[in-house]
Amino acid sequence: MIRRLHALLGAPLLVGVLAIGHSLESRAEYADVVLNRNSEKEGMRPVVFPHWFHRIRFRCKVCHAELGFKMRAGSNLVTMGDIIDGRFCGACHNGEIAWAPENCDLCHSGKPGLPPGIFGGHETNGPGIW
């Protein structure tokens, strides 16, 4: 009887805990990158970089060989100075190929407080240093 009571009380509790865990978990699109080494220190939202949007338009080699982005989230210190001078994002985000850097909020669209890193679904969780 007591065991049955435990089961009756335990099941909703377990469901509740799982639901809270699920809502806290990021459901970002696979390979979304958050850049936040400088953003919040400088009073802006973190940047969300969606890989999926960019790879429809550019092959990996464009950013990772030609423009010099290292293939490890957090290893590229990108400043607005770089971008305005046409380096990194600024090679395209110049008002010609893609929107110009004046559109601050389009890139600085992240949730405040997010750590820099790569996000995106259950597949990227688990052991890893991304």
Binding site: E25, S26, R27, A28, E29, D32, V34, R45, V48, D105, L106, S109, G110, K111, P112, L114, F119
Partner: peptide
């Protein structure tokens, strides 16, 4: 709802 974008942001 994706947990990385600010739902209150202008973008």
């Amino acid at each position: 709802e994706d947990g990385v974008h600010d739902p209150r942001g202008p973008a």
